[in-house]
Amino acid sequence: MQDTQENRRLWLLATPGLLFFLIFFLIPVSALFLISFDKSSTGIVDIRWMFDLGNYERFFSRAIYYEAALRSVGLAMLVSIIALFLGYPLAFLIAKTTDPARNTFLMILVLSAMQLDMVIRLFGLMVLMGDKGLINQAAAWAGWTDGTPIPLMYNFFGVVVGLVQFTLPFMILSLVGVIQGIHPSLEEAARSLGASRWKAFWKVTVPMSMPGILSGMLLVFALAISSYVVPTLMGGWKVVVLPIHIFQQISELAKWQFGATVAVIMFLISIAAMLVYQRSASRLAGGRI
């Protein structure tokens, strides 16, 4: 049969790619899990099949680790809420901009801001927000401060601003398509039945953009919880989150097994967020997904 022949050819052609993902993705991630269950021994990197829970006990019994996990989760949730409030109006504006040139221009701005290396964007933010940064200089120049700098970074606030800057484009892109897909006649129908503009917005547009809101918040949560550069540069090592622990355990202390454990826990938190997202998404769709 031609179909089976064609099928065999497709599988054969895809084999290099599938092998690539098997060898360099599935096996390494499995190895990470296995290593996290080996007894912690400084300097040894090998899979020893120990199935030992010691690293996990250590993580959940020491305040510096589980508090870092809670801080990471709290930070990521806060950032996803702020990114939603800042991102929704811009996404709405882009979705409702019908002039193609203006629309493309706005999309290029958002995409460029998203794709530019975060370290470069952080350079700009740090020059802006540092103790001797532009904002503090401008405040002193205008006579608003007596020269003592306003602490804008190397603290929790700085990390939040950095993470919002980092994740905002992802939120906007998740929302634009969904808002665009809402047929304008639905809002017009609500208006013609006597709803005010705001009521029509809250009762029609917001519920219909829920899929985009959920997927955007999930994406922002996953990005914010796993960012290493933003907390280290904007927090000046004072806001200790999970990625900082991973890096320290591996690169500074050579505690490979425990570093792997922290990485697995961060990974599982992302997966848990994804499951919560799928549950809420399917409830929204009335069980159709």
């Binding site: 958002v110 700009g124 905002l168």
Partner: peptide, 9 residues
């Protein structure tokens, strides 16, 4: 927020 850091660079 998106563009000012880039402008500062």
């Amino acid at each position: 927020i998106l563009l000012v850091p880039i402008f500062v660079v």
